[in-house]
Design a protein around this nucleic acid. Structure first.
Lengths: 220, 220
DNA sequence: CGTAACCGGAGATGCAGTCTCCGCTTATGA
DNA sequence: TCATAAGCGGAGACTGCATCTCCGGTTACG
């Protein structure tokens, strides 16, 4: 009986096929994180050490692969928002949210494109955004009620702040993958209602040579 | 004598040719500003109402066209820096510089790409950057000496701040070409050493529908 | 050891951008 | 007025890139 194929149930893959599936998933995660969603499936196959055919046998198309990969990543973003809202200090909660939100996007270009563009996986991501909005609104309003966060900020500013800051992260990554946190620091200072001095930035400025290096890498 | 062709001197174009040259230049300026340097010459020809052939007869390639167009635009950037440094109030000078620098890039994607990527017109732009660096350094240090600007900011932060803010400008332009100034305001607040309250932002936040609209336009 | 499942990667397909070519049109000045 | 050099439009050649297919050969496994 067990030898009969059971069409509706999932038949386990042959061992080599399962191994390759994992190789592909891992390579894709790495590639999307480093390069963004525009990487070709040929490149992913190359990284995984398999042929393109193998990728297409396992995933109908790029979209399916993206879906399979990011299902849980976007749940993580929601988890970060929940953790931030759970923090006892309202301002620290906001900082936690910003750091997590931006940090995840800075570490993973693919995730950023998924969260910010609705070009892929509309279903899944739209759902996550719906769960996110009330959480972020609460984080913002709580910090405002505590008199810490500038009262004119709105939850709808978040995507833009996220875009800005993960944008620098992309821009500077190749030379210094952490400088972006400098600018998160500056923006957070800009979000406070009042302060007596600028907070200490977590990272020193790049020097001019590094900036030149960045610009050189950006085009032929 | 005047009828002899003078090979080294420039022979004036026939009137229709000259008219088309202008049409192309104007169309290109508009197209580069709106879409960035990646627009195709076919698109520029279409906007100018001429054939592609006409464009290629007048400009050897895309690069030449870009050169012809942006020669004075980048000089303008230098002029803004000089004006800012000339302003009597050091902080106001910095604000002037940021507004001008970001504003020009926000109004013209092509200029932004030229200033930030060194993919095109290396010569001309590199020269402008050399003239710019001491000016910006002076603007920054003067505002710091006045005790207004946070002391840990460096001139080398400018390209990144520019990238960040003109990045949001690009992102939001299609829905509201001015919201980016909101984020300039937040960043400027983050650059001050101390303040008693958040400054008033020049533009209200977008509402969620607008944000959704932006995301929808970013890719099918 | 037979065979169904799987593999690799060459290449078909489709699309987009740059630039050329040539038959036709037009400004100009003799 | 008209001869002609200068100019025009745009189809399409060429190139490069990304997606996805196909099939001869290989491999896991009952």
């Amino acid at each position: 009986m067990s030898s009969l194929p059971s069409p509706s149930a999932e038949r386990p893959l042959r061992r080599d096929a399962e191994r390759n599936r994992r190789l592909i998933l891992d390579a894709a995660a790495e590639a999307f994180a480093e390069e963004g969603l525009h990487v070709t499936l040929d490149e992913i196959a190359r990284r995984a050490g398999v042929g393109v055919g193998t990728v297409y046998r396992r995933f109908a198309d790029k979209e399916s692969l993206i879906d399979a990969l990011f299902e849980d990543r976007i749940a993580e973003v929601v988890a970060v928002a929940e953790a931030a809202l759970g923090h006892e200090d309202p301002w620290a909660g906001l900082v936690l949210w910003m750091d997590g939100f931006i940090g995840m996007q800075a570490a993973d270009q693919g995730l950023k494109e998924l969260l910010l563009s609705s070009a892929h996986g509309q279903q899944r991501v739209a759902g996550a955004r719906d769960r996110l909005l009330p959480l972020v609104t609460a984080i913002v309003e709580r910090a405002q009620a505590a008199g810490e966060l500038r009262p004119d900020l709105r939850a709808s500013d978040m995507p833009m702040l996220g875009h800005m800051l993960s944008g620098v992260a992309d821009y500077t990554r190749c030379v210094s993958p952490d400088v972006y946190r400098r600018y998160v620091g500056i923006v957070l200072d800009g979000l406070r209602v009042r302060r007596d001095a600028a907070s200490e930035l977590p990272i020193p400025a790049l020097d001019i040579d590094d900036v030149d290096a960045i610009m050189s890498t950006k085009g032929p």
